[in-house]
Design a binder for these strands. Structure first.
Length: 289
DNA sequence: AAGACAGACAACCGCGACCGG
DNA sequence: ACCGGTCGCGGTTGTCTGTCT
C-alpha cells in the first residue's frame, strides 16, 4: 500500500540509491552514527525514509559487509542453520559475519529455485533423496516446513549453540576458495564499496581481511574463532546436530557433489555479476568514492 | 543478432515487537 | 494499561545482466 508510516508525510524518493545519496548517508553515519533512523534522512539531507536509509546502510554500505559469492562453508552453514532456526535470516546472518540477512535470504531463495527447477535430476545417483530445501518458504507447507511455524525456541537456540560449538571444529571457510572454487569468494573490498571507509593499508587477502580493523569485531564471533584457529587443513567433514542430520537433503549433497559442478558453475556468473554490480553501483557508490 | 529465459541482487512493503510518554 | 512512534525482520517484487536458443 502506502509508504512506511515514518515517511507518509514526506515526499520520499524511492528506488535505487544514487551515489550522491550513498555518499550523504555514509558521511552522516560515519560522523554521527545512527541513533535514530527516522532522523537520519533529514539530518543527512536525504529524501528517503528512515527505513530505507537503514536498509541501505545495513545491506550495502556498512563497512563490514562481505560481498561476493558465498563460500562452500558458508553455504553449508546457512543450510545447517536454516534447518535449525528456519527462516530467521537475521539470526542466520548473525552467525555469518559480514553477511546480511537480505543477502542470505536472497541466496536461499535463488538456491531453492535452482533446486526446484532441477528436482532430483542431478541426484539420482546419490543418496540424496530429495533436493527440496529443508524448510523453505516454498516448501513451508510441505515437508519440514514446520520449522518455520515453530517459534525459535530455547531448544532450537540450544541446538544451534551446540551446532556452532561443533562448528568450531569445522574446516574454516577457506576464503581463498576451498575445493576448487575458482574465484575468490568474497572480495574483501567490494569494488563498489566506498573506499574511503576502509583502511586500505590493511591486507585485503581474504583470511587476513578477517583481522582488518573493519572486521576486528568479527573476531569475537564464534564463527570466526574457528576461522582463525582451524584455518589450516581440517578435513571437510561437518558434524551436524541431529536435526540437521535428519534433513532430507543431507550434507552429502552439499559436499562436493550437491553443490558441486552445477553450483560451482554459477561461480563464474556470480563473479561476473559482482562485476556487473560493480559497474552498476560501482560507478555509483564505489566508483565515485 | 535478437529475443527469451534465468539468476542475482537491491529495494519495498507489511507486520510484529519494543519502548517511551 | 493504553497509545503512538520507531525499529527490526521476513516476504515479496522489480530491475539488471548474462546466458541460451
Amino acid at each position: 500500500m502506502g509508504h512506511h508510516s515514518c515517511c507518509n508525510q514526506q515526499k520520499v524518493k524511492r528506488g535505487l540509491w544514487s551515489p550522491e545519496e550513498d555518499e550523504k548517508l555514509i558521511r552522516y553515519i560515519t560522523t554521527h552514527g545512527y541513533g535514530c533512523w527516522s532522523e537520519v534522512p533529514e539530518k543527512a539531507g536525504l529524501q528517503r525514509c528512515g527505513k530505507s536509509c537503514r536498509l541501505r546502510w545495513i545491506n550495502y554500505l556498512r563497512t563490514d559487509i562481505r560481498r561476493g559469492r558465498f563460500t562452500a562453508e558458508e553455504e553449508k552453514l546457512i543450510i545447517s542453520l536454516h534447518a535449525i532456526v528456519g527462516n530467521r535470516w537475521a539470526h542466520i546472518a548473525s552467525h555469518l559475519p559480514g553477511r546480511t540477512d537480505n543477502e542470505i535470504k536472497n541466496y536461499w531463495n535463488s538456491w531453492i529455485k535452482k533446486k526446484i527447477r532441477k528436482p532430483a535430476m542431478s541426484t539420482t545417483s546419490s543418496s540424496v533423496t530429495t533436493v527440496s530445501p529443508p524448510c523453505s518458504t516454498a516448501a513451508s507447507d510441505a515437508g519440514l516446513g514446520h520449522h518455520l511455524q515453530t517459534p525459535f525456541s530455547a531448544a532450537a537456540e540450544h541446538q544451534l549453540d551446540a551446532f556452532l560449538s561443533q562448528s568450531l571444529a569445522l574446516p574454516p571457510p577457506k576464503l581463498g576458495g576451498s575445493g576448487g572454487q575458482e574465484s575468490p569468494p568474497a572480495a574483501p573490498l567490494p569494488p563498489h564499496c566506498p573506499l574511503f571507509m576502509f583502511d586500505t593499508s590493511v591486507s585485503v587477502s581474504p583470511p587476513s581481511s578477517l583481522t582488518s580493523p573493519a572486521a576486528a569485531h568479527q573476531l569475537q564471533h564464534p564463527f570466526l574463532t574457528f576461522t582463525a584457529a582451524a584455518m589450516d587443513d581440517a578435513p571437510i567433514s561437518y558434524h551436524l546436530p541431529p536435526l540437521v542430520d535428519g534433513m532430507g537433503m543431507g550434507m552429502a549433497a552439499m559436499d562436493c557433489g550437491g553443490l558441486g559442478e552445477e553450483e560451482r558453475g554459477h561461480d563464474h556468473r556470480e563473479a561476473g555479476n559482482n562485476g556487473q554490480k560493480a559497474g552498476r553501483h560501482g560507478e555509483t557508490a564505489g566508483g565515485g568514492l
